[in-house]
Structure formats: structure tokens, C-alpha cells
Design a protein around this nucleic acid. Sequence first.
DNA 1: TGCTTTAAGGACTAATCAGTTCTATATTCA
DNA 2: TGAATATAGAACTGATTAGTCCTTAAAGCA
Lengths: 199, 199
Amino acid sequence: MAGRPRKFNLEAAYNAATDLFWVQGYETTSLDQLLLMMQLSKSSFYQTFSSKKNLFEQCLSRYDEQSVVDMKKALAGAPSAIDFIRTTFSQLSAEAQRPSGRRGCLIMNTVVEFAQRDIKVARIFKRNIKSTKKIFTEAVTSAQTSGEISETLDPAIVADFLVTTIIGLKSQARAGSSSKKIADIADLVVASIINTTES
Amino acid sequence: MAGRPRKFNLEAAYNAATDLFWVQGYETTSLDQLLLMMQLSKSSFYQTFSSKKNLFEQCLSRYDEQSVVDMKKALAGAPSAIDFIRTTFSQLSAEAQRPSGRRGCLIMNTVVEFAQRDIKVARIFKRNIKSTKKIFTEAVTSAQTSGEISETLDPAIVADFLVTTIIGLKSQARAGSSSKKIADIADLVVASIINTTES
DNA sequence: TGCTTTAAGGACTAATCAGTTCTATATTCA
DNA sequence: TGAATATAGAACTGATTAGTCCTTAAAGCA
């Protein structure tokens, strides 16, 4: 057993592919572009990833997992729950200053591109939304306990509201809205959940 | 001069094309699908619309103009500015019950698909955002005068905030979120701008 | 040395794509 | 009637697509 070991960096190849899909979408990204960016021959590509579609699904899953890990880490490391929320939103405007922050959300981009017609994509989207919502629900509940968010609000709905605004803000970033504009909106979002009572 | 008059309905053809692009996006929609839905021969298609890209740009422009006309009409016909805002958001959840309400926003879908790489698309997007924002700014200012929204808030930022949440909610609708969920979030959005003070 | 696997590259397939060209027919007005 | 335009349909082009196949070389381990 045991043959020649893989020469290229699998992680780097996935990242290169993800970056391309993230900027261009699935359909618009050609195999040639992938091979170029991933620095792979066609042979190595198909031996490792089977197909363009399969690679894409793996990139999506990895993106999902990574983003959830990042958020959990951010919540766990934050001084308070409301601080986590505040930081999450202010990061959106900071990131919008770099091209990499103007790619939107890979999963939302994909949902827009594929809409209803791909079950695997829909599954990954639902999993990601569920995980994200859970983290924000925890944060909101915690902020309610410490009195920063009104207890009259349903934490699940506030979480959905926050996720919705993040989707909107990331879309705006992809569309080219200024970092300043995104910062202003983000501030209003955070202020609104702090001051709002009764659902 | 004067030859045989056009037999097919131009308006209906545009609408059929727009519906297809709206659901599927530009790249994924093939010429064959367009000819089928528009009920046109290839000859008539190219004679009338020149190219797939040109038709798409016209569909986008028409969508932009129509949506702005609709919003202006809604604002003008509403009992009050805050009522216009409330109705706009409750319509989002009502529409999400029908498949036609789960297509998202054609312009935002297009921006996600094309991102930075198409100037004409970017222009239409900016025009639409500007018009939409202007209408909401008017509504917010009016609601501030009548005391329903705090005068400490910047109407331009509140307008941007509302546009952002609409984008987020329409994306969620396209992604398949339930009408109930959208209604809950929409209610929170409206409540948040009514109760929030200081920007 | 053999077995196994990776890698690189070139040739190729089969499908699909938007768009063009051509012929024949239909319908309007002057 | 005749000029002008619309319609229909078929044939075709040229480019691009993802994916397969095959050959040759390299690199690991037993």
C-alpha cells in the first residue's frame, strides 16, 4: 500500500476555490479558472474532487462550519453578550473597507443563485441559518438577563431580526455600499434592539 | 413605408422574460427557455430585442421603474407615513405566501449574480437604491413631523436601515423562510424605529 | 525490485450556448 | 401592385463547457 503522497496543499486548494466561488458564484466560475487559481492539473483535480459540483458543495460546507466556529469563538471571548453583538456589527463595516469584505455571504449568494432548485444547497443554508440563529438567541437571552435588552422581547425573533439585518448589510457591501453607510445602519440596528420594548 | 405590424404583445413578452430572469437569474436562463416562455421565434426575438443581454437590461430597467412607481403610489395613497411603512413590511410577509413573493428582489438578485463586473447593472442598482431611499426618507421625515418616529434619528439613516431590512427579508423569502417568521421580523423592524431614540 | 498512488499534459467527447443566415410566407400601407 | 416589415423554421457557426481517457514520469513503502 501507500503511494506517492499528495504534493499540493489541500487546504490552500479549497481556500482558492472558495474565494473564486465567493466572488463569482458557481455557474460563472469555469473549470479553467479553478485549475488556475488552485494550481492543479485537470488530472489531480478530478482525482481529488470528483467534480466541480462536488467541490463546490464541500467549499460551502467548510464555509458553513468555519463561520459557525468563528462566531462561537467570538461570543465565548466577548466581555458581554451585547458586546459580542456590537462587535459583530461593527466588523461588518470594517470588513467592507477591504475587497474581501465586499463579497457578501457565500451561503446567501449561493441561495440567491440556486434558489429552490438544489436540495443540498438548501440543506446547507438551513443548517447555517439554524446555527447562526442559535448563537444569537443565546447572546440575546444573556443580554436580557444582564438587563441590556428588554425582557419583553422574544429572543428568537430578535435573533432572526439580527440575522436578517446581517444578510441585508452583507448584500449592501457586495453591492458596493460605503463602509460609512454600513456603519451607520449597523449602529442603528444595535441601538434599536437595546431601546425597543414590547414585541 | 409601414410593414406588417407586430403580432405578439410586447408587454407580455417582457413580463414573461422578467419572470424567468427573476426566478433563475441571467446566466442560468437559456435562450431556448426565453423563446418558450415568451412564445417567440428566434427570428422575432433577435429582431426585437437584439440580444439576451440587451433584453435583460431592459427587463431590469422596467422592473426598477415599476417598483418605484408602485412605492410612490403606495406612499401617496397611505393614510399616514407610518402606515405606509407598516403596510410595506406587512406586504412582504403576505407575498411570501405565494411563490411569486419568494423570488426575492430582481435587482438585488442581479447584483449578487454580477457583483462588480457589470457597469450597467451597477448603474441600475444605484438608481433603484437612490429612488427607494428617497421615498423612505420622505416617509420617515413625515412620520417624525407627526411624532411617530423620534426626531433625534437621522431620517436618511433610518431610510437606509429600512431598505437594508427589506433586502434581508426578501432574501429570506427567496431562501424559503416561512411567512410567519418574516411577519415577526417585519413587526420588530417597524416597532424598533418607532420606539428608538437618539442615533 | 515491485506495488501503489500522485502528477502533468495532451487529445478528445458530447453537450450546450448565444447568435447568424436564409428561405418562405404573411400582413400592413401607399 | 409593390415596398416594408413581421413571422416561422431550419441549418449552421464558433466558442465554451464539464468531464474522460491515456500515456509518461515521479515518489512513497514493503
